[in-house]
Design a protein around this nucleic acid. Structure first.
Lengths: 136, 136
DNA sequence: CGGTATCCTGAAAGATACTG
DNA sequence: CAGTATCTTTCAGGATACCG
């Protein structure tokens, strides 16, 4: 059954894509990036190069087989990662970034770097906010 | 009730933050960014400057009042946007990016620009993938 | 080894009605 | 105007068992 419901039906006519509009294709991509494991997988493959399924599952401690498979399938479908099967025994499968996937590394890196650099400020803001709101 | 459950309990000791690790604070931020409306709100405020509640709801056609409020609250708590109440009658509330929020515009822009630039390739990849898989 | 196939649950999203 | 309260629906995510 091939309905992971990743790409929901886009019924609107495809014209004048506002990158911020609802139901627009580029928005789909953002949704996928925002999904729980996609960024993690991309990051792992970006730093390690080719990885096997089990390797990935270990690096991303906590991911279930189902979610890892689902994430990998979606990324593969979007052309961001390449899946190669080596029909040995036991079977071996390797995942790696495609050239297209490589081009996404920059933007992704910018975002994670931002979060690392500014997490302190965010945490402070939260603390201050909670105090302000709690005191009422 | 102030438990939007945005920030789930981080029980682990705070040491050696791997930006990719589960439950790490910077990961929280990414999760929030990935949430359905946060990027849209940030984008809107980034381009328009200060906006009122109703203005935002109209720009982001499709958002429910509840989700908009929730998104705005979380972003405010994280110190990314500023909420200003003008106690006139009728009341007026304006939202705008904080300096911290401004620093996030770049990374966010990089990501949306990527999606606009490469959406064609992604769509092609999907088509090819579906054909490959369907034919089996 | 590298997955599917099922079932289940909690949280997210949405609809609707009401309010300071 | 700018929300809050409440209810319902949806569905991502996880647990488990099994398969080529």
């Amino acid at each position: 059954m091939r309905s992971v419901s990743t790409a929901r039906q886009v019924s609107e006519p495809i014209s004048s894509w506002d990158p911020y509009a609802r139901g627009c294709p580029s928005r789909d991509v953002l949704d996928q990036i925002g999904s729980k494991w996609a960024v993690l997988v991309m990051g792992e493959l970006g730093r390690h190069g080719a990885c096997r399924f089990t390797q990935l599952r270990q690096q991303l401690a906590g991911v279930s087989e189902k979610m890892l498979t689902q994430t990998l399938r979606t990324l593969e479908r979007d052309g961001l990662i390449l899946r190669t099967v080596y029909p040995e025994a036991p079977i071996r499968v390797e995942y790696e970034l495609t050239p297209l996937g490589q081009t996404l590394r920059g933007p992704l890196k910018a975002l994670t770097e931002w979060s690392v650099q500014h997490i302190g400020e965010v945490l402070d803001a939260r603390e201050e906010y909670d105090e302000r709101v709690g005191k009422r």
